[in-house]
Design a protein around this nucleic acid. Structure first.
Length: 464
RNA sequence: GUCCCCAUCGUCUAGAGGCCUAGGACACCUCCCUUUCACGGAGGCGACCGGGGUUCGAAUCCCCGUGGGGACGCCA
């Protein structure tokens, strides 16, 4: 049987890190087995679903390169299918109308909670052989409930968590269609997973509790039960649960924040999944290695430091032209200038080794394209009166120096020797004058790339 | 409250009864490299939640406890 997996977000917000990982695992599983990856938009909550959220989710997937083979399917466009199945279940007696009002149910729930019991439907309208149902009140439009088995257990071998068993006695008859006739989540999922031929349901473990109900419905429909893999959730950097209020950001935010998609992908893949000691791997390798075993059943805490480390790795590895393209945009945002025609590639080759973030990298090299402003503290600390004579001399020498890093190095060395100084005594003030800060790569290389006239100009600005 | 799930270094994890005086990675510390800061290299610190069992032998299996999380919607 060909593998068919799906990602089924509800469009009520952006694609966050947890959703992205779920999508990634589903996608990788399909890729690994040459199957199909399906995108299904679960938009039956009309109140909260928005087209903007659909777009945001697809943008996130697109950025990460999680391409789907089928879809997007929208549940709101599949109402006819759901209604058809609903009626067949009504006919088959696996579903029934329930006329209990919301208020009635609310009272029931409160009483049960107060008694310390699990709140659940009392089966008032559940048809049973020999049972006389209450009189139907014309006022109430009924909901449809699934007639869940009352005895026995539902069990499945979860690909992540192992065998899970739940007694049917724990389950009540859930509502599968609202009073207005629209089907509810658990029912739509069942119908869709069935009709779309999903073979592996890979989703967040907040759905573990829905699974037994879904299996029961699937069985009532005569469907084969897919395999389930419930992924544990991702916690924030501080170990707290991610929520809109707390740390849950769009994956696109990582792009804005200076992360390469390769780093995010690699990081996410490794979060909750492992392949021996492998830490750094391409998506191609991931798809080859990935399987539903070796997924951790426990929750994982997000760690930005490790993401940074991976980001640094991929910045070093990245094709230099692609890197230049990315940095150009970020640089423009900082300097307002277009550095394209300049020596950007050379500058990046000098700086990429030390960067772990694209925004930081752009910021670090901005001085090549816009005049830096050194801090008073740095100026005071490094550009001291006693080095000025040497600096004066160097400035003169530099005007006649061949503009290569090597020649510049010699020129500095000559002055340093002449004035009986140590190399850093001159290199540090040069850094401050030229780059605006006291940390930079080899100063002669910086100067070579900055250019002779710009270098002389910047030094001159400090000579009295 | 009821049901379900989870539990190895600070963090991500390896580990499927002896290969474990528990391995790797991030972070941290030290040293080396060095023209500052990084990068890189070499070391170091650092964990099996507790208690019972099973076994010749348990991080690994079982039970209990503790802690954390999730679910109990005419939300998804």
């Amino acid at each position: 049987m060909t593998v068919r997996t799906r990602f089924a977000p509800s469009p009520t917000g952006f694609l966050h890190i947890g959703g992205a990982r779920t999508a990634l695992f589903s996608w990788a599983y399909a890729k690994k087995y040459g199957g199909k990856f399906i995108l299904r938009i679960e938009d039956t909550d009309v109140e909260r679903s928005t087209p903007a959220a659909v777009q945001a989710i697809m943008d996130g997937m697109h950025w990460l390169g999680l391409d789907y083979d089928e879809g997007p399917f929208y549940q709101m466009q599949r109402m006819q299918t759901y209604k058809k199945v609903l009626h067949s279940m009504l006919d088959a007696g696996t579903a029934y109308y329930c006329y209990s009002s919301k208020e009635e149910l609310e009272i029931l729930r409160e009483a049960q909670t107060a008694a310390g019991a699990k709140p659940r439907y009392d089966g008032k309208w559940r048809p049973e052989a020999g049972k006389i149902l209450p009189h139907i009140s014309a006022e109430i439009s009924p909901v449809i409930r699934f007639k869940n088995p009352q005895t026995g257990v539902v069990a499945w071998d979860d690909m992540v968590k192992g065998r899970i068993e739940i007694a049917n006695a724990e389950l009540d008859d859930l509502i599968i269609a609202r009073a207005d006739g629209t089907p509810t989540y658990n029912f739509c999922v069942v119908v869709d997973d069935f009709e779309m031929g999903i073979t592996q349901v890979i989703r967040g473990d907040d759905h573990v509790n829905n699974t037994p109900r879904q299996i029961n419905m699937l069985m009532a429909l005569g469907a084969t039960i897919p395999q389930y893999a419930h992924l544990s959730m991702i916690l924030g950097d501080d170990g707290q649960k991610l929520s809109k209020r707390h740390g849950a950001v769009s994956v696109m935010q990582y792009h804005e924040d200076g992360y390469l998609k390769e780093a995010v992908l690699n990081y996410l893949a490794r979060l909750g999944w492992s392949h021996g000691d492998a830490e750094i791997f391409s998506m191609q390798q991931f798809c080859e290695w990935f399987d539903l075993d070796h997924i951790t059943p426990s929750a994982a805490q997000f760690n930005t430091e490790k993401l940074n480390w991976l980001n640094a790795h991929y910045i070093k590895e990245m094709d230099i032209n692609l890197l230049a393209e990315d940095i150009t945009a970020r640089l423009q945002a900082i300097t307002g200038k277009d550095p394209r025609a300049s020596n950007l590639i050379s500058v990046l080759n000098l700086y990429r080794e030390r960067a772990n973030n694209l925004n930081q990298l752009a910021k670090d090299i901005a001085y090549f394209y816009t005049l830096p402003q050194a801090s008073a503290a740095d100026v005071e600390k490094h550009i001291t009166p006693e080095i000025m004579p040497a600096m004066q001399k160097l400035h003169q020498q530099l005007a006649h120096t061949e503009w290569t890093a090597q020649a510049i190095h010699h020129a500095i060395n000559a002055v340093v020797t002449e004035f009986g100084l140590k190399f850093p005594k001159i290199a540090m003030p040069l850094r401050v004058m030229l780059t605006g800060i006291a940390q930079s790569p080899s100063i002669d290389q910086v100067m070579a790339l900055l250019g002779q006239s710009e270098t002389l100009t910047r030094i001159n600005a400090y000579l009295k």
